[in-house]
């Protein structure tokens, strides 16, 4: 009994210590102003490899009631364990913005990131941003997409790669376009990728890849398409939220 009690004591002390040790980062910054709302400026819905930094920082903006940017408001970032922020908290700059670099957790799935600030009454105002971590299979799919598909399916050009989208008579859809792609079952996707557009009575401008890609490649592409779908695909994927 005694042993049990002391065990409980030790545990609770440890828990206390652990919860204390998380604090100091945020207490170091003192807000000089308070906002009324917090909105996303950029950096949401990115996808990166699980466990690695996202390509772009997450930027949020704190506004006051009329909607003007607030300088000096404290923004804190939080997410499920495994997600790291650099920095974890920041004061908004002269344009009302706070910026953080995010590394997602080691498991593939959708990560909810909470950016919060305090309003004048010291009530917490929170913004939820979603980021997508790709696992092995989805990362492979992403590489294959960049190699074989992106130039037709992505209307945006980069310096390295000119998009072919505008040149196509029938327009393909970007793979993030969940409304279209989620209507297609895995079997449909496998069919159109393997046998080309005509397999689903669609345009032959969508080539058949079945002799070029391995079965596992096609599966990887589908895993990628499902992972980046927006809104999220109905084939369930894990969501990691702050607990």
């Amino acid at each position: 009994m005694n042993c049990f009690a002391s065990g409980v004591l030790i545990l609770s002390v440890a828990a206390l210590a652990a919860s204390c040790s998380r604090k100091p980062d945020s207490t170091a910054l003192k807000p000089t102003a308070f906002g009324a709302s917090i909105v996303e400026s950029s950096g949401g819905k990115q996808f990166g490899q699980a466990g690695t930094p996202l390509p772009q920082p997450v930027v949020v903006q704190v506004n006051d009631e009329p909607g003007a940017a607030v300088t000096g408001a404290l923004v804190e970032f939080a997410a499920a364990p495994g997600v790291t922020f650099d920095p974890v908290s920041a004061l908004t700059d002269s344009s009302g913005q706070a910026t953080t670099n995010v590394s997602l957790g080691g498991m593939a799935g959708r990560y909810q990131i909470a950016a919060s600030t305090l309003d004048k009454t010291h009530k917490k105002v929170e913004l939820k941003i979603e980021e997508i971590a790709l696992g092995y299979q989805q990362t492979l799919g992403r590489r294959l997409n960049e190699q074989y598909c992106d130039r037709c399916h992505n209307a945006e050009s980069t310096a390295e790669r000119v998009s072919n989208y505008d040149n196509l008579e029938v327009k393909p859809h970007p793979f993030t376009e969940g409304e279209t792609l989620d209507k297609l079952s895995d079997a449909d996707l496998t069919a159109i990728i393997t046998y080309g557009g005509p397999a689903l009575n669609k345009s032959a401008l969508m080539p058949a890849w079945g002799n070029t890609l391995k079965k596992t490649d096609v599966q990887a592409l589908i895993a990628y398409i499902r992972a980046v779908s927006d809104p999220p695909s109905r084939s369930a994927s894990a969501v990691f939220a702050k607990d």
Partner: peptide
């Protein structure tokens, strides 16, 4: 178990 986020119960992601 693809939708399970809780460890140690997640399914292993697909690998080769």
């Amino acid at each position: 178990l693809t939708d399970v986020a809780q460890q140690p119960y997640r399914k292993h992601p697909v690998i080769p």
